[in-house]
Design a protein around this nucleic acid. Sequence first.
RNA 1: GGCCUCAUGGUCAAGCGGUUAAGACGUCGCCCUCUCACGGCGAAAACCGGGGUUCGAGUCCCCGUGGGGCUACCA
Length: 479
Amino acid sequence: MKKVRTRFAPSPTGYMHIGNLRTALYGYLFAKKEGGEFILRLEDTDSKRYVGGAVQIIYDTLKDAGIVYDEGPDIGGPCGPYIQSERAQIYMEYARKLVGLGGAYYCFCDRERLESLKDENGVGRYDKHCLHLSKQEVEEKLAAGVPYVIRQNVPEEGSGSYEDMVYGKVTVDFKDIEDGILIKSDGLPTYNFANVVDDHLMGITHVIRGSEYLSSTPKYNLMYDAFGWERPVYIHLPPIMKNAHEKLSKRNGDASYQDLVEKGYIKEAIVNYIALLGWSPKDNREKMTLGELEESFSLAGINKSPAIFDEPTLRWLSGEYIKEMSEEEFAARARAFLQKSKAYGKYDEEKLLKILKTRVEILGEIPEKIDFLEEYGPFPEALYYNKKMKSDAEIAKAVLPAAKEALSSLQTFENGAIYATLCGLAGEKGMKNGQVLWCVRIALTGRENTPGGASEMAELLGKERSLARISSAMAALGV
RNA sequence: GGCCUCAUGGUCAAGCGGUUAAGACGUCGCCCUCUCACGGCGAAAACCGGGGUUCGAGUCCCCGUGGGGCUACCA
């Protein structure tokens, strides 16, 4: 059996969209699963759409996501070059060959004539006018330097079918396919031609791409057949949607891979999540590493219908990855986000990270979760009130002075000791632990909710700061 | 408009002729608990509509409806 070869062929027009990344991921996963090779090819034949820096983004994103290709522009390989703009002569050579085979022909029609073929709605098809030019006429025009394109010669009758691995049998009548342009007047090929030539020359066995090519695939097959080449296996993927009506796109500020990483989503979770968008493993597992995905990927699990990108689900998954990370790993990844916080450098980093770990799903939440530590100031007395804790400002007036005294005599100012001390105090005063703890925590932070209890907050703040804050809270209460 | 294609809870998604129609996210409730979060338990929530085929249809066929795609010298 022939070795499986798949490819990811993006065009460098800007960002790495989530949909693009998923296509790349599936191509990679399928190749790895089958023990084959995965190739990266850049489709930059439309110079008008080229965006500087886009190529680097593609390399960086794939690398960052862990999708490694066996051959590509930057690493070479036996089928190079892997950038279409550097393969212009190859396409021209094959286009001429196809003309000789009767599968294509030169066309000299100018834009004006082409326009005239369209009706009031702008729809109309090429009439094969130049197909009927004599060989001599063609030679003359070519020699005279008349601008030309090379068009595919699609039969006027019959139909083309193929078996898509996810959609099943797809049939399109040839009468519904126009004689598309294969080589543009600038001498470069269109996607319609380049993908066929390259996929064949690069030995691609399985073409994995978006479903937008579902209905144009028969015309590519016409070319494979005309050349006498073996047709690849086709695997078309449904689109990833932003909502029920729009595809996910960079326009509208929809998230790209880079954006998600910058927001602090764990990248393994991003890869994991997009793998699940349109595919599910036989055992329905949810959380899977890239390695596990390589193991269990199968075409049978690919869905046919569009999937809506759901950020909350990605969030959850990202949180799952964080929870099972080691402290060190979390620290390393969180550092950059920690530095964005006002509290950075002012508290024990290790303790900070510890309380953050179960309270954060994406790293970007870190600053907002701890900024409050530096925002201590006057707060409403009403915060002391908590029905369940049975506490209020009056209780606080009784608790705070005693708490201050008890804490100030503590030698080791750490969580366990603080907790024990405060609870002991509650016992002495015949109060519920919660009454003391709640009041102290409020005095310490001035916040209704904090990422940790009174004792944890006190330890984090340190003895000096804790006592100072309790004093200030007491002053505010007039005691 | 023509052609291709899709259709299970709000979202992802099992199911592939006979099930009380999984599971996950989200939502809500309860428990745990020094608040929040974590964790545990539980609840609400779906087969687009109409015809067939069949003893029996979410599963097969047809039509309709709705969505997406293609119809470029873009990919």
